[in-house]
Design a protein around this nucleic acid. Sequence first.
RNA 1: GCCCCUGUAGUUAAAUGGAUAUAACUGCGGACUUCUAAGCCGUUAUUGCAGGUUCGAUUCCUGCCGGGGGCACCA
Length: 570
Amino acid sequence: MKSQIEKLIKEALKNLNIEDVNFSIEHPEDFKNGDYSTNVAMVCAKGLKTNPKELAEKIIIELKGLPKQGFGGIEKVEIAGPGFINFYLSRDFFTSSVKDILEKGDDWGRNELLSGKKVMVEYTQPNPFKPFHIGHLMSNSIGESISRIMEFSGAKTIHANYQGDVGPHVAKAIYGLIKFGLTDSSKSVAEQAQYIGECYSKGSNLYDTDENAKEEIEVINKKVYDRSDVEINKIYDWGRKVTLEAFEEIYKILGTKFEYYFFESEMAVMGEKIVRENVGKVFDESDGAIVFHGEKYDPRLHTRVFINSKGLPTYESKEIGLTITKFEKENPDVSIVTTAIEQAEYMKVVQKALSIMHPDLESRMQHITHGMMRLASGKMSSRKGNVITGELLLRDSMDIVLEKVKDRELKDEEKKKISEVVGVAALKYSILRSSLGSNIIYDFEKSISFEGDSGPYLQYTTVRANSIISKAVKFNTDGKKEIPENVTDLEKFLYQFPEVVSYAYESLEPHHIATYLTLLASAFNTFYGNTQILAEENKYMAYHLDLVKSFYQTMKNGLWLLGIEVPEKM
RNA sequence: GCCCCUGUAGUUAAAUGGAUAUAACUGCGGACUUCUAAGCCGUUAUUGCAGGUUCGAUUCCUGCCGGGGGCACCA
């Protein structure tokens, strides 16, 4: 409909001998101002030195004179405010859009913007031997949603995770494990992983405060790299396995599946090789290290070390190895990395170095950054041990849900499933409801909500709709097939879904989906509140049921884009 | 010091250069007791400050102020 209106306006402008201009067509916030609105008259009036309202009149006359294709769905056109032209859609348009939603089903809202393209999205990036904290939860929720939005836009998506299984953090954890003892292997994977995280934190503190510990940790670090010590290898292999298994349990609850797991230990070799081959061309030697002088290419960039003076590759080199590996293995059209903003400046430098070596990759690397989760008391740091782990947060969230359903007549198994699905939704929504730029000051009470503007609100509303649909089979809709004259706000939001999806893709901002679904759910609840759908006297029952079904479908598709599941009951 | 992000009701957020800045939470009040009350209805703004561009600025530009991040061998 939007493109039809656009086409009509362009034709009208042509007939009036007005040059093509950049005008917009949007949905007015208030439905009183129509379903679509354009600023074309105001934009043109400037150049023509005429009154925008008079120009709008002329455009409308021209629009009405044009061949009708497109005008089928438009009931009336009006001029309002400073010169907006507002389009009001007809009852028929909304009725047929409901039908359209039901026909498209799970494909409703899809677009072809990335048709035939392959996209790799890297996200989550927790490190073995360190806790999975809420920052990882944030990266996971955002990365998962972005990959689903791209998939819904026609792309083949590949999910990748990158995990730091070597480096000083590993040595610190192993030092802690040696000093404070290993944990009981009869405990759950999650408990063992938590213990390893605690040892990391203690080891890290000792590294900063105790010279002897520092020396020992550096020795361990070297041994981890060259695998020269049998005892350390044993602890390393066990710790790596346990922490990775614990991550896997979390991914399962979160609903994420990765096709690729990249590890720093594997990327270091190739990265180092590439860097060394390009010394003198791209990289320079400086104080015994190999560096890249970013500022030579862009004043906003800076110098970073790629191979340190001990000859070991830094994270920067590993990132080069990783990126090249991704393109060698899958050759994606776009390679996206999702991380917190603290990596933004660093990534620009690395991507610049890569672009010089591979100019063709420059436009295919994309870094999406999000704000950081912070505690009211300051920055979280797993080194300091003041982290909130992913498990803890998930468990707290699920416990709240369990408490809410405890008196329901449901099996324990069902209650557990609901608490998982709803608990995760509450968390994910709290992350995905706002734009990616700003930080989230974490406060469980304030951050995780189960009422109004929340994940559970969206789920609850969807479940309500589903409940009507399943009860409807007992009703006969013969003689109840009239179409109501009035159009509800619900219908006025429903048909907009595909536009919201493509906008979310273009801006790479999942919160547009979240905001839209909340508006939609609210419109449904209003409708639900003042309409008794399953009532013998409801002569609109058939249409109302289609409307409920199309709402359910839209919510299901939209929540999928956020990585949120819809429970059967709640 | 330089660079990047950010600043909106008491709080947490939304707003593709547009119309009366939109919600939720909290507080107070209300309806139904019939399809799930995690619901519905009602009730609060100097968009950090000062300029500029524009018919029109929360949005774009400049400067200042506050918060966060980055700036050589951590990741």
